[in-house]
Simulated assay, not measured.
Amino acid sequence: MTRIDRRFAKLAAEGRAAFVPYVMAGDPDRETSLEIIRGLPAAGADLIEFGLPFTDPMADGPAVQLAGQRALEAGMTLQGTLDLVRALRETDDETPVVIMGYYNPIYSMGVETFLAEAKSAGVDGLIVVDLPPEEDDELCLPAKAAGLNFIRLATPTTDDRRLPKVLSNTSGFVYYVSITGITGAAEATAAAVAPEVARIKSQGGLPVCVGFGIKTPERASEIAKVADGVVVGSAIVERIGAGQSPAEVLAFVKSLADAAHNAKG
């Protein structure tokens, strides 16, 4: 079992949903980013998604695009992202870490080198948004062989014909994108999400985390009632982009985590 598997088993036994914050690695600079990242577990993060900065982030909305630009301008790289994971592991060896991004930087490093470095750094899972199931030989299957979870996205347009393909070789959890479009767009609603979560779980059996369109503690609580996990990204990186201190950002994260954790209580 990976850290991700163990964490979801623990949460299921406790009867509560996971809270999963997304932060762009190196945003707005390495030192500030590391301070925030190291504070996330104490603020209630059950898993952490590290965004991998990339120059052409086609699935990201304005807030996450700007976060990536800030990180790139501050010198963040794929190797630097892995070094941040290593730095987190100096103080936390339990919280699962997922790298979310695009294939190009991984391809440029070399898949074999990347997987060895990621495993050594303490990465537990990958979300690579521009690699469909038809390309599993590129990274998904090698990642699984290296002991990393490969987490796939499902969307409102993933119909029953497509879903089995999406779920094939997926492990750890399924990331359900609650709205069509880019990150940071419309708000997710439990009424729309609940039947989709049930449909995905009935076919795959994996935990389902819901992201996109969750911006407030109230919405996090609502979604946590019907999902195995709640992912919040844009609302967090917007605060980083606005210049809030790490303490302020972490206080907001805690408000989201508390709402998600208490939703099923």
Rank of each mutant, 00 (worst) to 15 (best):
F252E: 03
G101V: 10
D159L: 02
R219A: 08
V208W: 06
L66N: 09
A18I: 09
A18D: 05
L52G: 05
L115Q: 10
A194L: 01
A263V: 00
A185P: 00
T91D: 13
G265C: 00
A143L: 00
V193D: 02
G233R: 09
D159I: 08
N262D: 14
F8W: 04
A143I: 10
R16W: 04
G229T: 04
D60P: 03
D228W: 05
R89F: 02
L72M: 14
E134G: 12
L206V: 09
S171D: 14
E73H: 12
E73M: 13
I214H: 08
V210M: 02
A259N: 01
A59S: 13
D130E: 11
P246Y: 07
Y102W: 09
P96M: 02
A224P: 02
L40P: 13
M1Q: 13
L84Q: 15
I179M: 14
M1V: 14
T158R: 03
M58N: 08
I200D: 00
F19Q: 04
L84D: 07
N104T: 13
D27T: 05
I223M: 00
I99V: 15
V177E: 05
D136V: 05
Y22R: 02
P41Q: 06
T189W: 00
K119R: 15
R219Q: 01
R30F: 06
A74L: 00
L88K: 14
L115S: 09
S168W: 13
L84A: 11
A118Y: 08
A235G: 10
S168Q: 15
A25Y: 02
A235S: 13
V174R: 06
I106A: 09
V237A: 07
A13G: 11
G125Q: 03
V123T: 10
L47D: 09
K215S: 15
M76I: 03
V129H: 00
P96S: 03
S178L: 11
A198W: 07
G265E: 14
S171V: 11
A43L: 03
V208D: 06
A257Q: 03
P132V: 04
G110T: 12
G110E: 07
Y175E: 07
E35T: 13
I106T: 06
D5S: 14
T95D: 04
R16D: 06
T81P: 00
L84R: 01
T55P: 00
A18S: 06
Q79K: 14
L40F: 13
S120G: 08
L163T: 08
S168K: 15
L40A: 13
E218W: 07
L148E: 01
A121F: 04
R199W: 10
P164F: 12
P207V: 06
G204P: 05
P142V: 03
T216F: 07
I179P: 06
F212D: 02
A154D: 05
G233C: 08
A145H: 01
L148R: 01
A194Q: 12
T55A: 13
G39I: 12
L256A: 05
V20R: 06
A198K: 12
P21N: 03
Q203F: 11
A17Y: 09
E112A: 15
E248N: 11
N262G: 15
G51M: 02
V97N: 01
R219I: 09
A145P: 04
S245A: 05
A71N: 05
I151P: 06
E117Q: 15
Q69V: 07
P132R: 09
A190V: 03
I36V: 15
S234M: 09
G147T: 07
